[in-house]
Amino acid sequence: MSGPPEVTQHLEALARGDRSAVDHLFPLIYGDLRALAGDFFRGRGAETLQPTALVHEAYARLVGRDREGWTGRRHFYSVAALAMRQILVDQARARGAQRRGGDLRRVSLEACDTPVAPETEVDPLVLDEALSALARLDPRQARIAELRFLTGLSVAETADVLGVSERTVKLDWRMARAWLRDALRDGERPRDDDAPGDGPPS
């Protein structure tokens, strides 16, 4: 089984270093993740959906189940994690819009009726901005945060996607986590980072 050739082709272009392929992959993967999740929810009751499973399924659909050791796989997961992040932000925005009639304001997830852990009082929009700020300082740590925190990949999977050692993933994740804790502390939005001494720690 293999998916639409353009996904494979763009992934190969990306593997060769052609960053612009992301422009093409992003909508394709974003669209597919959405369609998959849509199918999932249309087909079942009000279960929750594991983001990891969603991304794996999208890979199988768009690239093929038989392409496990392929280099383009890493890039797929990178872009998929970005798409996932975008989707989560969209969800939050949509929810915000729904509740506040179009006013994009932060919303505590506790207000939702879905069973979530009490600690997930993180505003996706704030998180998104924090991740963007982190990406400007250290893109790899931001990517690790997306893959581990948002997509739920394991240390080994993350290492595989990014082509770095598991030790690096573990340490980077710890630092990124600390950074995000800092940035999200008291729900404060991290400030812009260009000036020395700015950003966390302030």
Binding site: L49, P51, L88, P124, F149
Partner: peptide, 10 residues
């Protein structure tokens, strides 16, 4: 992953 899951509700 729970965080992402909590957002991905029907």
């Amino acid at each position: 992953g729970d965080y992402g899951r909590s957002l991905l509700t029907e």
